[in-house]
Design a protein around this nucleic acid. Structure first.
Lengths: 170, 170
DNA sequence: TCGGAATAGTTGAGTACTCAACCTGCGTTC
DNA sequence: GAACGCAGGTTGAGTACTCAACTATTCCGA
């Protein structure tokens, strides 16, 4: 590996600002959701994915994929959500190994109850702070960052796959 | 509270992209740092803050503030870093309650060892993916998001303070 | 100079995540 | 049709974080 390309002063500032923004923003989002809906943002997202599906059901594996999570994470998460009565696990028809997570009525109700407050937070701390041009830019920037990582993910099994440059000297 | 201002389709897309990007990106950063430097990104940041200080030392409280963490988090984190021999805690001169965290030589060495690989990841997955204009935009966007949240933070004690709109009906 | 209130930091219980090991059922192949 | 490997999912140990309760020191007012 060739000499490290350190960050310029400008890049440093941008990097720090990005770190601060994401840390503060997601901290706020998570905190509010925990307070008002008794669930972390990750669980909220699981409920959202299920609710967007025609029959409010998704195989565990697909749930993991669409949530960009590991199987293990989803398994633990759904176990919790099941305890709360918001999700139920059923054996999947065709495949004896497969399970589907089903959003219960109570889960849908919890989601509907949580949504307005959550959306309001996202607006207040993200969209309301940005000009329309900045919103558009953020969308493009996010896609530019996400796309290659999504691609890299699907190349291996469970995320993230460590087959990257190692940082050793040449 | 008035009717929920739901997200438009465009905003939805942006929001999802932003979620995906941050989740994938920080997942990658954290994973690589854990693998190559045996520390999570949060701990790396602590070492960085200490290293940037003239005497490689910072009061616990100041460390919490500059890291945008809670006291508790820093306390736990420094305890860990102390076990690893990367940081030492000393009584602070003037104030009998105060403690300073001091970056040890070994800690500085660990930081120096970790830095190139880490910076390389940040470049590879962030700066290299963006045009200069996008980098500039990201800096401004990040500041626009971070600034109000920083301000809100200092208004109360430990972050984040829940004194926000509650999401109840009016 | 005594007695609170505020400040600095720690502690412990509970929660969410990661990684690796592990079942279980499916599908081949011979 | 038995044995292999593999895909789908779970499990448990270990780690990082949060929140609330706590200790210890300092500040301040009468």
């Amino acid at each position: 590996m060739r000499r490290t390309r350190w960050l310029s002063a400008d890049e440093q500032r941008t990097w720090r600002a990005f770190l601060d923004a994401t840390q503060l923003f997601f901290g706020q989002i998570d905190h509010q959701l925990q307070l008002q809906a008794k669930m972390p943002h990750a669980y909220y997202e699981v409920l959202v994915r299920l609710s967007e599906t025609p029959l409010r059901r998704l195989r565990m594996g697909d749930l993991a994929t669409t949530s960009l999570s590991s199987k293990s994470r989803i398994s633990h998460a759904v176990a919790r959500l099941e305890e709360a009565g918001w999700v139920r696990r059923e054996r999947s028809g065709g495949d004896g190994r497969g399970l589907v997570a089903v959003l219960t009525d109570s889960g849908l109700a919890a989601l509907r109850a949580a949504a307005p407050g959550h959306v309001e937070q996202v607006r207040a701390h993200l969209f309301d702070r940005l000009t329309p041009a900045q919103v558009a830019a953020l969308g493009e920037i996010s896609e530019a960052i996400a796309a290659p990582l999504r691609a890299g993910r699907s190349a291996c099994g469970d995320p993230p796959c460590g087959a990257e440059r190692t940082g050793d000297d040449a």
